[in-house]
Computed example of a mutant assay.
Amino acid sequence: MTNDFDADALGQAAVDAYRRDGIVCLRQAFDPDQVAFLRDVAARDMAAPSRMSNDATRDGTGRFFSDTFVHKHIAELGGIVRDSRAADVACALMRTKKVNLIFDQFLIKAPGTSTRTVWHHDATYWPVAGDMVATLWLALDPVTMESGAVEYVKGSHRWGQRYKAESFIDKDLYKEDLPPVPDIEAMRDELDIVAFEMAPGDCTIHHGLTVHGAPGNARDDLWRRAYVMRWAGEDVTYNPRPNLQPMLFDPQIPAGGPLDSELFPVIRP
């Protein structure tokens, strides 16, 4: 479901769609100045990335770049995290009064990048437990199916199953004893799969257990740059396990404790 963004209230339809489908698209949730600023920061980050960066392209063409905890690397991003509508959107959709930032991230596919984003869901990559986990994916460029629009399996966040994390680089990286993601490509006729073509400033918000994936960027004239924020609501606790996605540093939180820490700051209230 796509909704016109309301600065004061998302509306019940958006909240219901998020809870039912695990995915909502909001149009023009971020203004042109914020988008221009994030494009500039993305260019700076690609030129001088942090130690948390990755280039997932190994075989194939182009460049699939990511960098994580980027607000810790480029301090000006703290203003977007704190002062943009992102945290308020996360609160409204998850029906939580408190949100922590798990991390922020750039996900960038250069023109002609053949590497696809494998089918996965997010929550099993991270040391968190709870239902109120969401990802906000902000388009910094026009997004088309040809340039790599993300596809989401509607309702998959309520399948009652956690799937093994899938590395985009090393298939043996994650070792948690969970079943693999089903063969979504073989199940297309049985599933309700949605994708959104987007303008800069549009964003999607999906649940941490919503299965999603994306093709490569087949355009030779269009970047697919996204700024991503991962949010946790009031029911989320710290759940460290071996072989997870690396965090920037140890937050020194006991297992089962609240996320509130320097690593996972409280953004609202």
Rank of each mutant, 00 (worst) to 15 (best):
M229W: 02
L93K: 08
L136Y: 06
G78Y: 08
G213Q: 09
L263T: 01
C91M: 12
V133I: 15
L140F: 01
P265T: 11
M52T: 12
E166C: 09
R85P: 02
G79C: 00
M198T: 04
V99D: 06
M52R: 13
R51G: 11
D170G: 11
E197K: 05
M1C: 08
F64Q: 06
D88N: 13
A255I: 00
F64S: 10
D21N: 14
F196R: 05
A14I: 13
A129Q: 12
F69G: 03
A36T: 15
H157P: 08
V35D: 12
R82W: 03
V24P: 06
S66C: 05
R224L: 07
K164F: 10
N100I: 08
N54C: 03
T204K: 09
G78H: 10
V266G: 00
D88M: 07
P269K: 14
H73A: 08
A165R: 09
R241C: 02
V181G: 03
F37M: 13
A17R: 12
L263N: 02
I74Y: 12
T68N: 15
T204S: 14
K97W: 01
N243G: 00
R95I: 06
Y18F: 15
W159M: 06
G213E: 12
G62R: 05
T61P: 01
D104K: 03
R51L: 11
S156C: 03
E185C: 06
L10H: 10
G130I: 04
T61K: 11
A232V: 01
P32W: 07
V118Y: 13
F5C: 07
T144D: 08
P254A: 13
D141T: 09
L209S: 15
G257A: 05
E197Y: 00
T96K: 09
H120C: 04
K154C: 13
A186E: 10
S167K: 10
Q252P: 00
Y125L: 02
L38G: 06
G148D: 09
K72M: 12
A123P: 01
I169M: 14
A9I: 09
D8R: 15
D8V: 07
D8S: 14
D131G: 14
V70K: 00
M247W: 02
V24K: 04
R51H: 13
E176L: 06
V150K: 07
G201T: 09
F106M: 01
C25V: 03
R58L: 14
A48K: 13
T96Y: 07
L26Y: 14
A43V: 08
F196S: 04
N54G: 04
D131N: 15
A92V: 05
R219N: 08
F106W: 10
A75I: 10
A42H: 12
K164L: 15
I80F: 13
T57E: 12
R188C: 02
E166D: 02
D250Y: 08
T57C: 09
F103K: 05
K164H: 14
Q34K: 09
P242C: 07
D16M: 04
M229H: 04
P251Y: 04
T117A: 10
D83H: 12
S114A: 12
I102P: 01
T124Y: 06
G216L: 11
E262S: 10
S156G: 02
K171P: 08
P32M: 12
T113A: 02
D33H: 11
P127W: 05
A123H: 10
A87E: 07
R158Y: 01
E151P: 00
D55W: 02
